[in-house]
Amino acid sequence: MPCVIASTSLPETAWARTVRDLAGGWAQRQLWAHLGWQDIRQRYRRSVLGPLWITISMAVTAVALGILYAGLFGNPLETQLPYILVGFIVWGFISGCINEGSEVFVANEGLIKQLPAPLSVHVYRLVWRQTLFFLHNLVVYVVMLAIFPQPLTWRSLTALVALALLMVNGVWVSLLFGIVSTRFRDLVPISQSIVQLMFFMTPIVWIYGDLLNSSNPTVAERARIAEFNPFLHFLEIIRAPLLGQDQHWRHWAVVLAITVVGWALTLVAMRKYRSRVAYWV
């Protein structure tokens, strides 16, 4: 039960409290920006290379899998490797937001019960941390550009807009999944399994365009099912510009629609259940 506001002096509605949570959390960006960065340093404390390990492990994975799948699919390495690399970097951000998002409030139980901070602080911290991971991985992309130059144009800058959209979506995903899975703990393993599965269903290692244009009509037909996969569209809007490829506007349309619907759902969930999170953790 959300709290019933019946006070006579300046009643604050549940909507106002929701907005105040989001805005108040944003106002504390010094705190979550610091903590997000701290989380990354923490993971690599006492290692000589520190957060550079993020970059290195991404490079190793992308090169190894790039070579493997270029061989398996018979694709040229200069096509397969950049494709896999960008796919991995973006997927890392998406899966991080979902997997850590579903645990965000449970993991911060101590802070939530001891300090009256807006819940959104924990979510902004998470998305910021994932963004920092993303930026570390982007170093590999820049190195890759030197080895396999991509036909980048001014339009490639739309990747920045796409990244911003990914972050905006990361916030609602973490808020919504965080609230629901704090109440129903089973959703954590469920969503983790689904994310694992979606990794294979989403064109990250396999090249979507190749399957669509496959000479085998059955394969081409089946590949179209991927359009129903929301992750495909999130991936396309950022991967295409980073690889200097053309993209269809429908991917942007789908992403924008998901952004609006997702935020609407999240705001409703927050209005109703935000105040319960402290009771549930």
């Binding site: 709290c3 001891q114 105040s275």
Partner: peptide, 28 residues
Amino acid sequence: SGIYEPTSGTSEVRGRVAPVFDLGVGMD
């Protein structure tokens, strides 16, 4: 402190709250 919002009834906290409950929380 506003950490728990009441399940029924009302509460209004005006002002910046500094709770000192657990000295260890938030320490890394």
